[in-house]
Simulated assay, not measured.
Amino acid sequence: MKPRVPKAFLLGSMITMFAGTLLAQPEFDFMPEGGRQTLLRLASTHTFDLKAAIARKATEAEWTAEITAEAPVLPQEEVETLASYLAVNMPVTGDAAREATTMEELAQALPPDGKELAIANCQFCHGFFTGYLAHDRDAEGWRSVFKSPFHRELPMTPSERETFARYSAINMPIPYEKVPEELRF
């Protein structure tokens, strides 16, 4: 008898693979890193304990203090982006996080970050620049985007919407000249 792979595992693997492929594309390098990417970078270059971080709940202020102490040279926007990502998404629950033994397995267990969510959801229905990259809104302004009928239908969880809103409030708008020409309109 052949072992069966659960559909949820396959779907999760496909989503992660798709998001990873999108993020690996150089045309998105101009966008600031999202919280997941910054977290993985810190975990691989500092003594930041990824396994401990994904297992605990803390406020954005508590995460900010911890990140600043761990990586004092990290730019303020990156600290804010990572702290908001952690505050919204930690602790990570589920078997994948609990059973992870390598950095790659832990990375797979992490929820998508704001950059990944924007790339996956914002560029297929309208211009990425005019519909997303050029907008200057606070977190509440980005949350209000999901009140429109067409955005309400996006297959995003409440925590993904919050992650997206906070990332976007911190990192948008991106100056016109930093956006590649092919993505400007």
Rank of each mutant, 00 (worst) to 15 (best):
L110W: 04
A97M: 05
V92Q: 04
P32G: 06
M31K: 06
L82C: 02
L11I: 15
T38Y: 02
L86G: 07
V92D: 01
R98Q: 12
A69F: 00
P155W: 10
A134K: 08
E80T: 07
P173G: 04
E66M: 13
A169S: 09
E99A: 13
G35F: 02
V145P: 00
A139E: 15
A55H: 02
A107M: 06
D136M: 00
L39Y: 00
S159C: 09
K115I: 08
T16I: 07
E140T: 01
F185M: 14
D138Q: 00
L39C: 14
P26S: 11
F18I: 15
F164D: 00
P112M: 15
E105P: 03
V5R: 06
A109F: 00
Q76A: 15
S84F: 07
G141M: 00
K147I: 07
Q76D: 13
T59Y: 01
I170S: 05
D113P: 06
L133N: 09
T81S: 07
L10A: 08
L50C: 04
L82A: 11
F124L: 14
G131N: 01
L10N: 10
K2T: 13
R4A: 15
L110Y: 03
A169D: 05
D49Y: 01
C125F: 10
R41V: 13
T102K: 04
R143V: 01
F129C: 13
R143K: 14
R56D: 07
A58T: 09
E116A: 15
D138V: 03
S13C: 10
A96I: 08
L183F: 02
P6M: 07
A100P: 07
L22W: 00
G34Q: 03
E160K: 05
E160L: 12
Y85M: 10
G34P: 01
D138S: 03
Q108R: 15
A52Q: 13
F9D: 08
R143E: 09
A24Y: 12
R4H: 10
T64A: 09
E105G: 08
A100L: 05
A118I: 13
V79W: 08
L10S: 05
E80N: 14
G141A: 01
M14T: 14
R137I: 00
R137K: 15
A65E: 10
A24K: 12
P180I: 10
A58C: 12
E162L: 14
M14C: 13
L22K: 03
E160T: 11
